[in-house]
């Protein structure tokens, strides 16, 4: 039988959550994402992945955590404009460095990664650079948008597996809860473009567009989440100035979709 204090520590670990600040999602996850988890947020375009990840960071920054958004495809300045309409957004979060945006192409350039295909050595260097950034800025929440674009430069399954495993471990070791944004086509029958990311991530949240009698509904479903019980039902979401809102999908009208 473990000593009492050890038992208490295990209890604390089990309870440690990173609340997303999105009320409906935190309810689905029984309080939030288990701290240190690396979660794949996957879906086709226009499903709200980037918006959700930005809100996750804004709530973290408001709660006093340092947050980092690594943008791979879009310029940070353009992304920043997306958080300003939130009622709860405070510009001081950016000014005070609680919410930091970094463009991945800048990291590539600084590391001298000019070739279109990255090597296994580059993967090591890239993961180390991300780890250093997390250490330097004491980051507790991180988003990579999108990991699919990083994988595009890795090409092989071995390198993708290596990258996801190492990035997940590096961030988890630092107590950093991370969202990896993954893009899939609406007809995809798996959760990531390369099929590797989904097997390694601690959690998978699938975001989709459900077509029902000509209406298009944005949906969210937590498919997997290590370290917590969670609902696996499908929810309908709305992107509002008060943040993302979720309600259960009415089953009487369910008619397929992604």
């Amino acid at each position: 039988m473990p000593p009492d204090d050890e038992g208490a520590e295990v209890d604390d670990l089990e309870r440690a959550r990173c609340p997303t600040g999105i009320e409906g999602l935190d309810n689905i996850l029984n309080g939030g994402i288990p701290r240190g988890n690396t979660i794949l947020f996957t879906g086709s375009c226009g499903t709200g992945k980037t918006t959700l990840s930005l809100e996750f960071l804004v709530h973290g920054a408001l709660a006093g955590e340092n947050c980092l958004f690594v943008s791979v495809t879009e310029a940070s300045e353009k992304l920043m404009r997306n958080v300003i309409p939130y009622d709860f957004f405070d510009e001081n979060l950016i000014k005070k460095g609680k919410l930091v945006f970094v463009d991945m192409p800048v990291i590539y350039r600084r590391l001298g990664m000019t070739a279109m295909e990255l090597t296994l050595e580059d993967v090591e260097t890239l993961v180390k650079a991300l780890g250093d950034l997390v250490d330097e800025l004491s980051i507790k929440r991180l988003v990579i948008d999108s990991v699919t674009s990083v994988c595009y430069r890795l090409k092989t399954e071995e390198k993708i597996r290596n990258f996801i495993l190492k990035v997940g471990k590096t961030l988890s070791d630092r107590g950093c809860t991370s969202l990896l944004i993954s893009e899939i086509s609406p007809s995809a029958e798996r959760y990531s473009l390369y099929g590797v990311e989904e097997a390694i991530a601690d959690g998978i949240v699938l975001m989709g567009n459900l077509e029902r009698r000509g209406d298009l509904l944005r949906t969210l479903q937590v498919v997997k989440m290590r370290g917590t019980n969670h609902s696996r039902a499908k929810y309908v979401l709305d992107l509002t100035p008060a943040g993302i809102l979720l309600v259960p999908l009415l089953k009487g009208g369910s008619g397929g979709g992604t």
């Binding site: 029902r212 709305d238 009208g253």
Partner: peptide, 20 residues
């Protein structure tokens, strides 16, 4: 709300107004 068949969106708008 786009149409009266989007019942979830009616709930979401009510939820938003309550939040506000």
């Amino acid at each position: 709300v786009e149409s009266s068949t989007m019942l979830e969106n009616i709930m979401l708008k009510v939820e938003y107004l309550l939040k506000k």
